[in-house]
Design a protein around this nucleic acid. Structure first.
Lengths: 282, 282
DNA sequence: TTGACTTACGTTAAGCGTAAGGATA
DNA sequence: TATCCTTACGCTTAACGTAAGTCAA
């Protein structure tokens, strides 16, 4: 299972075509065919159906492994590159929308580049070196770490915790009282995994099958999401202090907080900013 | 960064010798030399010092990546192999010593092979297919999952939770009362990471630098560890119900439990046993 | 000098592209 | 028939082993 064969395999599986993968990777289509044949022989199973080109059961399974495997490989290369690289004086900070708090806003210094991304992208880009530092947010029990996927040896540090609340349209009957999360399992929710707390996470904490999204909201803009809430399209769980223009209903149980964490490999370039963010005076 | 080059690199780094790696891997020593040269050129850095052969800083870093990378690669291969493999009627269950509770003992059926291993070994061997099922134990906050390293897409299910207690020599002044874990940071502890709860974990929960081991106990035998406690060599944190022959002191804080979880990839072969262990009547 | 890695070199095989050969819609 | 994957075939090059070379203890 050589890495270039895996690369080819995911390219073919993603694109759904041998010839497309050939163009993408700069091989001839014949070479792609040979790559796939070699991989299938090595593993002793068919990985793709042809005509139409689609992963078999085994292929699906291999894809689950191949993705993380290849990003970790990129992470390793980037990690070593950082050891030798000359400092550029430029710091690229990736952040999820809700991790951009007032403190973070104040900490950014001249020359910093800020990129708002999904949680997943922040993690893999920090690992693969496209970002010097990352800030990710999420919901956990107080003082518990965020459950982040393992994309390599990254360091994570708490930057802050703050209360969560449910954003509800103004005048909503719930306004003014605290609710238990479980009561809201059947409410209309907006599924905005890259902006608010993912509904999957709510299901986990409430241990139910509920919290099914009425609308799906992709992207990373909080204001737009609040607009949808205001329009009565559904609820969203957010840090209390970002909820403006609509009502915020606090949670009485379970005890959860919104937490943001700083992640980095070798801090190198961004170590000064990292120190500021984690509250150390450098 | 082809996988065979990484394999060679870890073999050389581990064995501390090119010629030894050559013997181990079935290459000539010249080929090993060429592999390392190719990898160093690819990454643009020296990875090993020669004479003596030892990893450089960059090499150390690469090793951190290469280990997980290669086991995940093996895991992928094993995972696909399981999809095609014919059932053998034989189930191999890996378990950490403290996960062998009375319920587990009762659940094992004729033909089951049980292997007592460290937490880490159980995880990687389940991932790489040497084990059909694994049972791992550890300390967490009640109803929190165990923090297990990510070695691939494994399913984990709770098997049980039970109280923890500190094993102390009979007649110890603490006997009979409940203590806060933090009080014991400076006590004499036995560092038995593969048998009892690792001291590192205690440090995490007490948020201190204490809990330094007076003795180190490697291996997976609980009775021997209790013998050391009885001899006054130090304390150990264990599930209350395994503490016999010495006194058990319960913890008043933090609120933690001993938890055991079942892990498996594709349950396949062991699915009947898995169902019994997780309390479902199959 | 000996043990251990590197390098030169010849051989072999693997990888790639061209082009012809199916298969499918 | 057009598209797309497979296969045959020849070429190129990279990988390996042998053996000579080099370096440090």
């Amino acid at each position: 299972m050589e890495t270039h064969l895996l690369r080819t395999f995911v390219a073919v599986a993603r694109g759904g075509s041998f010839s497309r993968a050939a163009r993408d990777l700069g091989y001839t289509q014949s070479a792609i065919s040979q790559h796939i044949a070699a991989l299938e022989q090595d593993l002793g199973t068919a990985l793709l159906t042809r005509r139409p080109v689609a992963p078999t059961r085994a292929g699906e399974r291999l894809l689950e492994h191949a993705g993380p495997l290849l990003t970790r490989l990129d992470a390793a290369r980037a990690d070593l590159a950082r050891l030798t690289a000359a400092p550029t004086g430029r710091v690229v900070l990736g952040l999820t929308p809700l991790s951009l708090t007032a403190e973070v806003a104040a900490a950014a210094r001249r020359g910093t580049e800020l990129r708002v991304l999904s949680r997943e992208d922040v993690l893999t880009e920090v690992a693969t070196g496209s970002l010097d530092l990352g800030l990710v947010d999420g919901m956990t029990a107080p003082s518990d770490p965020l459950p982040l996927p393992d994309v390599g040896p990254l360091t994570t540090t708490v930057v802050g915790e703050r209360p969560l609340a449910v954003a509800v349209p103004g005048g909503h009957p719930m306004t003014g009282r605290a609710v238990r999360l479980a009561e809201l399992a059947d409410a209309a929710w907006i599924d905005a995994p890259d902006t608010a707390i993912p509904l999957e996470r709510l299901r986990k904490f409430a241990s139910t099958d509920g919290f099914r999204g009425r609308l799906r909201y992709t992207g990373t803009d909080v204001r737009g999401l609040l607009g949808l809430v205001a329009a009565g399209q559904g609820l969203a769980l957010l840090p209390a202090d970002v909820i403006t223009g609509v009502s915020a209903v606090s949670l009485s149980s379970p005890r959860v907080v919104h937490r943001t964490e700083l992640v980095h490999g070798d801090p190198g370039e961004g170590s000064a900013l990292a120190a500021t963010l984690t509250g150390q005076r450098p």
